[in-house]
Simulated scan of single mutants.
Amino acid sequence: MTTLLFLPSADLGLRWLRFADDDSVLAGQGVPIGDDAVVAVAPPESVTLHWATLPVRSPAQAVAAARLLVAEATATPVAELHVAVGDEGEGDRPIAVVDRGVMAGWLADLAVQGVDPIAMVPAPLLLPRPEDGYVRAEIAGLPLIRGRATGFADEGMVTDLVVGDAPVELLDDLLLDGWLARVAAAPPLDLRQGPFARRRRIGIDWAHVRRLAVMAAAVLLVTLAIDLVRIGKYSFGADALEARAEALGRTGLARGETVTDVDRQLTERLNAVRGPGLGFTTTVAAAYAAVRATPGTELTGLDFQANGDLRLSVAAARESLPTDLKRSLERAGFTVNAGTFQSANGRVTGEMTVTRR
C-alpha cells in the first residue's frame, strides 16, 4: 500500500490518504501508522509550477535548462530556490520551484515524526492534466484547480480571474480516487531530487552473498581440479620419458650386464672407451691443433697416461716456439707442465705434460 501524506496548509494539519490493494481508500489525520511507503504532498501556496519544453537526454541537462527559465521568471536569486523537473509523458514538462529553506524544513519536520517519504509531489499535480480548460477537485480538505499549464489552490476570486470563461470540470470522486492511486505509485514530479534526493540505505542481501560464496568455492574447486589434472599429466609424462630414457640407456651397455644405475654405468663405459680425463681423442686432437697453430713445431712422440695426462715430445726450430706451443695449449683449456728443452744440431727438443684443467 502507498500513503499520500499532506503537509500542513493554511489552517489544515497533517492528513493522509491510504490506497489499499483492493482499491479501497482510507483517510486520517496526523502521522500515518505503519510501514507503508509514504509520498508527501507539498501545499500549493508554497510551490510555483511552470511548464516548458526541456532536453530529455539527461536529468542534469533538464534541471540546468529549467533553472535558466526560472531565473528569468522570478526576482528571487535562483541560488535560494530548489528547482525540480518532472515528466508527464507529453511535450511540455512540469517544473516546480520551492524555497530551499522551506523544502529543508518540511523534510526536517517529517524526520522528527519518523517519516522519510519516498517522494514529494506538489498538490496541484495530484489532478490529471486536462485536454482543455480546467479541472477542479477537493482532496483531503484542500481545494485544487489545474489547467494545461497552471496549477494552484482554488480560492474564489483568484480562481475566477485566472480561469475567466474557460470551462471547469468537477472531477468525479471515483475517477479521482483511481487517478490519485496512479499518482501515488508514480508521481509526475518528485521534489526529492538534487540536494534533497532520498538517501538509499545499503542493505546486505545475505542470500545473494551465499550464492556468490558458493560460486566462488565452485570456481576454486574447478581451478584446483584443473591444476591437479595438469600436475598428474606432467607426472605421468615425466615417468614415461624416464622409462624411455632408461630403455635407451640399456642399449648402450654391454649385453648381459646387470643394470642397477643406467646413468652411472653409461658414464663408466664412456670413460672406459674414451679414456680418463677428457679422453684420448679429445686431448690428442687439441695437441695437434696447437702444433698446427704454431708453425716450426712438431711432435716426435705421444704417451697417453692412465690418469688421462698426455705426455708430448716436441721438437722446434727456435727457442721461443715451445713457449708459444705451451701458451696455445693453455688457451685451449689445459694445464701444461713443460720440462727442460735442449738445443742440439739446430733443433730445440724437450717434453711437456698436458693435463685437464
Rank of each mutant, 00 (worst) to 15 (best):
A217R: 01
P188H: 11
K233R: 13
D227W: 15
A217D: 05
L191T: 02
F196C: 02
G194F: 07
F280D: 05
L241G: 04
G296R: 11
T282G: 05
I202E: 15
T282Y: 06
R274F: 01
I226F: 10
A290L: 06
P276H: 12
G252V: 00
P276M: 09
E242R: 13
T294Q: 02
D190P: 04
I231W: 14
E242V: 06
L266E: 03
Y234R: 12
A218W: 10
V273I: 11
G275P: 03
F236I: 08
R199N: 12
R244H: 15
Y288T: 12
G277N: 05
L221W: 11
D227A: 14
R192V: 02
I204H: 04
P195Y: 01
L270A: 14
L266F: 02
A243N: 14
N271F: 06
R182S: 15
V259L: 07
A245Y: 09
V214R: 13
R200N: 12
L266V: 00
I226W: 11
A286Y: 04
T281A: 12
I204P: 05
R255G: 08
L189C: 07
V284S: 03
S235H: 13
L278T: 00
T294D: 07
D177L: 01
K233D: 15
A285K: 12
A289E: 14
A185W: 14
L212K: 10
V222H: 00
A197R: 11
K233T: 13
D261V: 05
G178L: 14
L189T: 02
Q265K: 09
A186N: 15
M215H: 08
D239E: 14
Q193M: 03
G277Y: 01
Q193K: 01
R244Y: 09
E246I: 15
L278H: 07
L220V: 10
A218C: 12
A286R: 00
A207I: 05
L270H: 11
V209H: 04
P188N: 08
L266T: 04
Y234C: 00
G203D: 06
G275D: 04
T281L: 03
D205W: 02
A197V: 03
D261K: 06
V229T: 10
L224A: 15
A290F: 06
A216K: 09
D239M: 09
A181K: 06
G279N: 07
A254T: 15
G252E: 13
D190H: 00
A272V: 01
A225K: 03
R274T: 04
I204G: 04
A217F: 08
A181E: 05
L266P: 00
E242N: 14
V214Q: 10
R182F: 09
R230K: 02
A240V: 01
H208D: 14
G252D: 13
R201M: 08
A240D: 09
D227Q: 15
A293G: 05
L248A: 14
P188Y: 12
V183G: 00
F196W: 10
R274N: 08
V209R: 08
K233G: 11
D263V: 04
